[in-house]
Nucleic acid binder design. Sequence first.
DNA 1: GGGCTACGATAACATTTGTTATCAAATCAA
DNA 2: TTGATTTGATAACAAATGTTATCGTAGCCC
Lengths: 201, 201
Amino acid sequence: MAFQLDLPLMLEQLRKKFGINDTQFAAFSSYFKKLEIPAKTTLLEEGEIANRIFFIEKGCVRVWFNSDGKELTMQFFFENETVASIESFKKQVPSLLYIETIEPCEIWYISKQDLETIHQQLGHTLDIRNELIDYLFERLFHYMHHFLSFLRDSPLKRYEALIKDNPMVIRRVPQHYIASYLGVSSVHLSRVKSELARKKP
Amino acid sequence: MAFQLDLPLMLEQLRKKFGINDTQFAAFSSYFKKLEIPAKTTLLEEGEIANRIFFIEKGCVRVWFNSDGKELTMQFFFENETVASIESFKKQVPSLLYIETIEPCEIWYISKQDLETIHQQLGHTLDIRNELIDYLFERLFHYMHHFLSFLRDSPLKRYEALIKDNPMVIRRVPQHYIASYLGVSSVHLSRVKSELARKKP
DNA sequence: GGGCTACGATAACATTTGTTATCAAATCAA
DNA sequence: TTGATTTGATAACAAATGTTATCGTAGCCC
């Protein structure tokens, strides 16, 4: 049998995700750092240049931006999902987005620099690049669908779709964040909910 | 000097884009086919499985979908841009989107099969993969920004931004398409325009 | 436990946007 | 050119959504 590292579960998952074998990964595993942080902790602020990618082991996170003092939520992330202010990280420009915990979280991260080290040493392996391509497709399709539903659907329909497709959000995220994610005021989301309750009691 | 192929300008650009040298490209150039088509020609319909990627040499194109009989426009494409129903093409699922010319067009395309042939033969070259990664980032950032502006900005602001960032759309695209692209009715876009005219005469 | 804060529901009113209808101008085809 | 179609503006009204204010509840910190 191959030499077996005793990695934390999260790192083992990351290892598989990147398609790196045990022995190679041993050299890199120390690049991944763990945070244990309370709810409402800011991981990245508007204006900062993102130099970390986050991997959520436990808890949930929202990505939002400031619009004239109003907090508008772009997306929620839960266990085993990867979060970054991807445009800031890629282009090294100031982030438009905040990343903030909603619940107490256990989160791993890696710095851009360390990721590039891995990249340089394993660049000939295509797995990392393919992983990135898959990730980008996934994110792209997510935004296209979400955007499409904004053009096509009423807030009620978007809320129903959210219940169906991502009930975790309904259960774990405060409602005013959900409202801004759906593009309506929290007052209107209340209306939508009571309308839904009347429809299906 | 290297052997010089006498390629049409568009193919020369595609060659560079893919990072393939002249000699190698000679074997592939016949995979790219040219269309000369009138305005309002449908290149891909809802329900079809996309098996082509289009490169616009001349003219413009819109990508739209049907929502209860209403045509909702997702995006416009102009000269030297690449268009596809990317999710359908990648996953080989029925397309949600239509691709349709707005003006008379000269458009090149390559089939998925031929693209894969190139890919297999040049897979060791990373340029194609890097090109894809760059393209995906670009598309992703585009959708994120567009979506963000839907959450943050009024239709008036979105229209002003369009004038500033992509005046070609204003000049070349019929207004009711622009309205659906901005997420408002064509009647309301007229209102927005006259409001703008009053503001800055 | 007491007080504070965050969260969510509801009402009343204001604003924005959609819908339908009509008309005028521009474009296109025969 | 002429007639038909497309495009765009406007008015009048309807529907959707935002805003502000108020209230009650639940959770949380000390």
